[in-house]
Amino acid sequence: MQTDTLTATGRLVRASAAVVVFALLAAGTLWGTDDHFPFGPFSMYAGVNGPNDPAPDTRVEGVDATGRTLVLNEHNAGVRRAEVEGLEAAYVDDPGRLELIADSYARMNPDAPPIVRVTVIVRLHEIRNSSLTGQWHDETRAVWQRP
């Protein structure tokens, strides 16, 4: 016989799980970082651009030894855009850190020509009255070149 009513034990288990999840969310919000997903503070959603502020789109480009330019991402170099955005100031202060992305690409693509240059580029899409204008420009934020 099947019943639609939870037993006392079932209610206790569900209530306990809800309390634990709520406590983790509260702790992550107060003391956590985005790395504590899904219990972190979600600070990536905390800001908002104005209706006429450009919308940034960050990418990492690599140039290999043959001169070919390619976008470096989590599939070919193990680096996510959010990680690059979070470390942008560090890359600007010390572009040598970008060599780690080239090294990661080499590990993930052992038969490919080596990356000799890594560039962090931010494409700024122009916005007017909260709508895309179709205009954009790129800003180079950091460059590392193999000596």
Rank of each mutant, 00 (worst) to 15 (best):
R107C: 04
R107E: 11
R107P: 05
R107Q: 11
M108Q: 10
M108D: 07
M108E: 04
N109S: 10
N109W: 07
N109A: 07
N109M: 07
P110Q: 00
P110D: 00
P110L: 05
P110E: 00
D111R: 10
D111I: 03
A112K: 03
A112R: 05
A112G: 09
P113R: 01
P113V: 00
P113S: 03
P113I: 00
P113K: 00
P113D: 04
P113M: 00
P114E: 10
P114V: 07
P114T: 08
I115R: 02
I115E: 01
I115W: 01
I115V: 13
V116I: 13
V116T: 13
R117Y: 03
R117M: 08
V118A: 00
V118I: 04
V118F: 02
V118T: 05
V118K: 00
V118W: 03
T119F: 02
T119W: 03
T119H: 03
T119Q: 12
T119P: 09
T119L: 04
V120K: 00
V120R: 01
V120L: 02
V120S: 04
V120H: 02
V120N: 03
I121W: 02
I121D: 06
V122E: 13
R123C: 08
R123W: 09
R123D: 15
R123E: 15
R123K: 14
L124I: 04
L124N: 15
L124V: 02
H125Y: 14
H125V: 06
H125D: 15
H125T: 06
H125S: 14
H125L: 12
H125A: 12
H125N: 15
I127V: 15
R128S: 14
R128E: 15
R128N: 11
R128L: 14
R128V: 15
R128F: 11
N129D: 15
N129R: 13
N129Q: 15
N129S: 15
S130H: 10
S130T: 08
S130W: 11
S130C: 11
S130K: 11
S130Q: 12
S131C: 12
L132N: 14
L132Q: 10
L132V: 03
T133I: 05
T133M: 05
G134Y: 08
G134R: 06
G134L: 06
Q135M: 08
Q135N: 14
Q135W: 08
W136D: 07
W136P: 00
W136Y: 07
W136F: 07
W136Q: 01
H137S: 14
H137G: 10
H137V: 08
D138E: 12
D138H: 09
D138L: 07
D138A: 08
D138P: 10
E139K: 09
E139F: 04
T140Q: 09
R141V: 01
R141M: 08
R141A: 05
A142P: 08
A142D: 07
A142N: 01
